[in-house]
Simulated assay, not measured.
Amino acid sequence: MRLWIVFPSNMMIKLSQELIFNSYKAIDGRGADVHIVGGSCITLQYISNVIIHNIHIHHCHPSEHYGYRTESDGDGISILGSRDI
Results as ranks from 00 to 15, higher is better:
79 I>E: 08
74 G>R: 09
48 S>M: 13
33 D>C: 06
40 S>H: 09
81 G>Q: 11
32 A>L: 12
9 S>R: 13
68 Y>L: 14
7 F>P: 00
20 I>S: 09
17 Q>V: 11
40 S>D: 15
79 I>R: 01
35 H>N: 13
2 R>D: 15
17 Q>A: 11
78 S>T: 06
10 N>S: 07
31 G>V: 15
59 H>N: 12
69 R>M: 14
40 S>V: 09
82 S>T: 03
42 I>A: 02
55 I>K: 06
24 Y>R: 06
51 I>N: 02
75 D>C: 03
21 F>H: 06
9 S>L: 15
57 I>D: 04
39 G>Y: 07
58 H>E: 15
79 I>V: 01
19 L>H: 03
54 N>P: 00
25 K>S: 02
52 I>L: 12
34 V>C: 04
66 Y>K: 03
53 H>S: 12
77 I>Y: 01
58 H>N: 09
19 L>D: 03
79 I>Y: 00
37 V>D: 05
47 I>Q: 05
47 I>M: 01
76 G>H: 08
28 D>F: 04
55 I>V: 02
30 R>A: 12
32 A>R: 06
42 I>S: 01
39 G>K: 07
78 S>I: 04
47 I>N: 00
59 H>Q: 13
69 R>N: 11
33 D>M: 09
18 E>H: 09
6 V>E: 15
47 I>R: 04
35 H>Q: 14
3 L>Y: 03
60 C>E: 02
73 D>P: 02
3 L>K: 03
48 S>I: 10
28 D>Y: 03
10 N>A: 10
59 H>K: 09
72 S>G: 06
30 R>I: 15
61 H>L: 14
73 D>C: 02
40 S>L: 12
74 G>T: 06
62 P>V: 15
11 M>D: 10
4 W>V: 11
63 S>Q: 13
45 Q>F: 04
13 I>H: 08
68 Y>P: 07
44 L>A: 07
74 G>D: 12
50 V>R: 04
60 C>T: 06
7 F>D: 10
3 L>Q: 11
51 I>T: 05
15 L>W: 08
62 P>F: 15
46 Y>I: 06
25 K>G: 01
28 D>C: 07
16 S>Y: 09
33 D>R: 04
44 L>G: 00
46 Y>F: 08
50 V>Y: 06
28 D>R: 05
28 D>P: 05
27 I>M: 11
11 M>C: 02
51 I>S: 04
82 S>Q: 00
4 W>G: 00
29 G>H: 04
65 H>P: 00
40 S>M: 12
3 L>G: 05
63 S>V: 06
8 P>F: 11
17 Q>K: 10
5 I>P: 02
68 Y>G: 05
34 V>G: 01
39 G>R: 08
39 G>L: 07
52 I>A: 07
58 H>M: 10
85 I>M: 12
58 H>K: 06
63 S>W: 10
69 R>F: 11
